[in-house]
């Protein structure tokens, strides 16, 4: 399990990195934290002509708040997010999700940009990005563009980013005070990718629900935003009956696949169970 031979470049700037991508015309791979790419290289499932390592570009690691958004440099480590006071305060759902990402030694290297660009539909960060209607900034030869979460994920391990583009920033709307959040995940073992996970955010307004946000991990080839389930809550409030109805609707909105760990039916069933649990817990969190 040794990688094939490749050229290795560790550019010091983004422009240099973009030039390298252009030079290899799609045959280069971007190396971020490497926690998913390196196993693929070791299995020789990924066989790039070159690696463009972003780890020597210091300007790509930061966490900042701007206009109600928390912005992450693509190379911000999951470990930094886990221990960030800003994230704890302004994006508690992301903080909770981070604890589900692998294990601490994985989070030491793993990055938010890498996790999202890798687009594993069982991963937590793509689900949070989808639930929160986040966006990413991609930079390519023609400059920067902003891609909304709903336009980013195409299918398993595939995004709409071009081969000569680099995901440089992740933007998530900061969570209002008074909102409740929860990430409910079912995995076979601690630290494994989710069989199904549900990211939930609710903003109660008295008996009503001002906003509800729900997205899945593990329930299909891309993270699924459960808009129709959200609408039930936004219409009927956060009653037990509405939560049950939303959970039932959630199961209808997903088209999971079967694999050796879980059948499609079981994943659909889990989608309902975890949606209900996530909403109930989010509501409890909102009520402090």
């Amino acid at each position: 399990m040794k990688p094939v031979k490749f050229d290795y470049h560790a550019p010091a700037s983004l422009d240099e990195a973009l030039a390298l991508l252009r030079r290899y015309g799609g045959d280069a791979k971007i190396l971020a934290g490497g926690q998913s790419l390196m196993p693929l290289l070791n299995f020789r499932l990924s066989r790039p002509a070159a690696l463009v390592d972003l780890n020597r570009i210091p300007s790509l690691a930061y966490i900042e708040e701007h206009d109600g958004q928390v912005r992450f440099g693509a190379m911000t480590r999951q470990r930094m997010i886990e221990f960030s006071p800003l994230v704890a305060r302004r994006l508690p759902l992301l903080r909770e999700a981070t604890k589900w990402v692998g294990h601490l030694p994985i989070r030491t290297r793993g990055t938010i940009g890498g996790s999202i660009a890798h687009a594993d539909p069982s991963a937590e960060y793509p689900a949070v990005l989808t639930a929160l209607d986040g966006e990413v900034v991609a930079r390519g030869p023609k400059g920067e563009r902003v891609v909304k979460a709903k336009d980013l994920f195409v299918t398993y391990l595939t995004t709409s980013l071009e081969p000569d583009e680099i995901l440089v920033e992740v933007r998530l709307p900061a969570t209002d005070a008074g909102a409740g959040f929860a990430l409910e995940e079912f995995a076979r073992r601690h630290g494994d990718f989710a069989i199904v996970a549900i990211a939930a955010l609710v903003v109660p307004d008295g008996a009503r629900c001002r906003a509800a946000r729900l997205a899945t991990a593990g329930a299909g080839p891309v993270p699924v935003r459960l808009r129709a389930a959200e609408q039930i809550l936004e219409r009927d409030g956060l009653t037990d009956a509405a939560i049950d109805a939303a959970a039932g609707r959630a199961a209808e909105l997903v088209s999971p696949d079967s694999d050796i760990h879980a059948s499609a039916d079981y994943r659909r069933h889990l989608t309902a169970v975890l949606t209900r649990r996530a909403l109930r817990r989010a509501l409890r969190v909102a009520h402090g």
Binding site: A10, Q35, M38, N42, T108, R109
Partner: peptide, 27 residues
């Protein structure tokens, strides 16, 4: 395991635990 699961290769890199089987020496 050479795919980052078993953890036998874990070392401290700049003070933090990480898998040395899914990192290149040059990094």
């Amino acid at each position: 395991c050479e795919h980052g699961i078993c953890g036998a290769c874990t070392i401290l890199i700049d003070g933090e635990a990480a898998r040395s089987c899914i990192m290149l020496a040059v990094q």
